[in-house]
Design a protein around this nucleic acid. Structure first.
Lengths: 160, 160
DNA sequence: CACTATTCAGTTGTGCACAACTGAATAGTG
DNA sequence: CACTATTCAGTTGTGCACAACTGAATAGTG
């Protein structure tokens, strides 16, 4: 049987080339479609992710957003400042814990949600997938991310 | 039957949240694993993609690399300068067409290929997928990218 | 042949991802 | 209680993606 261990290195490098490229290309293609769909909302793709989280939870500390999106403050701090400058969110130090900053959508930010309703359908149409395939892709990607995130760097080093 | 048209907007926005996040997370997780695996080669993930293409073709104009990886000169020019500074590639104006710049691996750049042999296997192991699943994922992502940005499938196929 | 359009690599500027760090606030310990 | 460790948001610096642009070389047109 053909397995990971029986494929020649040369073919494997080639396969890697392909999956590497496919993933990179799919991600950038997705970004491109979102960029187009989000243009009228005045949001970038990561900013849209943040707004989705805030629409769902009402308000969250920076840390809470970071946990949900797996982003650190180095990425979030400037992004949230831009969302604040755009008038979509409000940031204020928590009175209970002065280390924490609470972020919540402004009236304008909340109003954006209505406009955003059209976005998912546009993306879904662009993918050419039906509902079941979309869910399957979501689950596959999620499972993959969990596996990849959970990999101990030391394990990785020892498997070569 | 449940289709794209019968799902309520609210659920759809939620689903979008999920697939959006899954894709984003999977991409970043992949990047993280590659970052680790490529550390000893002194390459970033996009730089690795460029080297893979050069190992396969020997030498290519900047435009040729861009076509294969769907990257424009705005991304490639500085990236190639860094690869040149690292001693892995050589860039020179083409004598036949002074507009074009030919890029090819140096002796050190070619030598990297031997080290890179270990990389794909490490990535494959980290994904926890078997060979058939990896191929399926590759094909799905490639098909998705094609649909999303209207790339000619023949071009994609010729990349690997 | 002269002139315009196109091609090519490169630059500039914006935004994101992330590592490494800072400084302030809080939690936990003896 | 005093002191250390941890938590939190933020900053700095590097690299990538991409839009919009520049300038030089070449192709294509009348």
């Amino acid at each position: 049987m053909e397995t990971l261990d029986t494929v020649p290195d040369e073919d494997f490098l080639r396969l890697d080339h392909q999956i590497c490229f496919s993933l990179h290309a799919a991600t950038r293609a997705f970004n491109g479609v979102y960029r187009e769909a989000l243009k009228e909302l005045g949001l970038t793709y990561p900013q849209y992710l943040v707004m989705l989280v805030l629409w769902e939870h009402g308000e969250l500390p920076v840390k809470g957003i970071g946990e949900r999106l797996r982003l650190d403050s180095g990425t979030l701090s400037p992004l949230l400042k831009r969302l604040e400058a755009a008038g979509y969110v409000e940031r204020r130090r928590s009175p209970e814990d002065e280390r924490s900053v609470t972020v919540r959508p402004t009236v304008e930010g909340s109003a954006l949600k209505a406009k955003a309703r059209a976005v998912p359908r546009r993306i879904a149409t662009a993918t050419g997938l039906d509902l079941e395939e979309i869910r399957e892709l979501r689950d596959r990607l999620a499972a993959l991310a969990v596996r990849l995130d959970g990999v101990d760097p030391d394990d990785l080093a020892s498997c070569g």
